[in-house]
């Protein structure tokens, strides 16, 4: 059973030595879409109780790396990965692992709010139903909505369409939907880019609360946001030297260090806003 294998709890080993705080170790050697090499040489450890941010110019492969972490890229015809993603002591790209099982343990929130065309309640209960959850569904839904800071706003309209909420509420609904099944890792791909500053702030606060329970990886275009919320930051850049556009990880470290004392020239220039 692939699911059972993923469920076995073992610390992740990094270079032979065991680092118990790393929940997921994503190590991409080469990543292809068809014959196009989109990302190379990118290694990002995602830590427990921390927010790991990826920044970098548009098209450098941030979303691609994030989607690698829950095998969403497998839905792209022609996708191919050389490398490993270690999670719970397993390579999630191992031959016996079912991508669907992986996604049940690693939640994802997308750039555009994407609630289903059904009621608020059914949206949140979706994952519970998939997992055949036998306990008290209503209580779980309430808990998830409270964790996503949405309960007070929707408790009287659980039967109304999820699409009738505002953009910021919809995005929090999507977060509630993702955390209802209590995944271990939560992946967020530019979750605030469709939102106004107030809604953005409320999602940022929410992320800080949620990191007590989940390991969080977030892609963002907004450097201030990365600085405000993240503990670790990875900077990706595009290598155009081979006549192609291949993204790679330039620098990874504590957010403080990346934003105030970047080691690499590309990072320095990007942080200073010399190119975008």
């Amino acid at each position: 059973m692939p699911t059972a294998e993923i469920a076995s709890q073992e610390p992740v080993s990094t270079n032979g030595k065991v680092d118990p705080s790393v929940v997921m170790d994503c190590n991409i050697e080469n990543l292809y879409y068809g014959s196009f090499k989109a990302v190379r040489d990118t290694r990002i450890p995602v830590q427990k109780n921390a927010i790991t941010a990826f920044i970098g110019p548009s098209g450098c492969g941030k979303s691609t790396v994030l989607r690698c972490m829950n095998r969403m890229n497998d839905l792209v015809r022609g996708f191919r990965l050389e490398g490993h993603v270690q999670f719970r002591g397993q390579d999630i790209y191992g031959p016996k692992i079912d991508p669907v099982a992986v996604r049940r343990f690693i939640g994802m929130v997308f750039q555009q709010p994407n609630p289903f065309a059904t009621s608020v309640y059914n949206n949140v209960a979706f994952g519970l139903r998939l997992n055949n959850f036998k306990g008290n569904k209503a209580a779980k839904v309430e808990e998830a909505l409270k964790s996503a800071d949405l309960w007070d706003e929707v408790k009287d309209k659980l039967n109304e369409s999820g699409l009738s909420l505002s953009g910021g509420q919809q995005q929090r609904l999507c977060i509630a939907r993702a955390i209802a099944t209590e995944p271990e890792v939560l992946l967020l791909d530019e979750p605030c880019s469709a939102l106004d500053p107030v809604a953005t702030r409320s999602i940022e606060e929410l992320m800080k609360q949620l990191k007590a329970r989940f390991a969080i990886a977030i892609v963002t275009h907004n450097l201030q946001q990365a600085q405000r919320v993240s503990d670790k930051t990875g900077f990706l850049y595009v290598d155009t030297s081979e006549g192609s556009r291949t993204g790679y990880l330039v620098e990874f470290g504590d957010s403080n260090q990346i934003f105030h004392d970047p080691k690499q020239k590309e990072t320095q220039q990007y942080i200073k806003g010399e190119f975008s």
Partner: peptide, 27 residues
């Protein structure tokens, strides 16, 4: 049916049939 709805279903760990019957067809 917008692709992002299918992606939402897959992202929650739905199989192809679950995504089709729970999300795409109803939508």
């Amino acid at each position: 049916v917008p692709t992002r709805l299918r992606m939402a279903a897959y992202g929650l760990g739905a199989t192809r049939w679950e995504a089709i019957f729970a999300v795409t067809l109803p939508t």
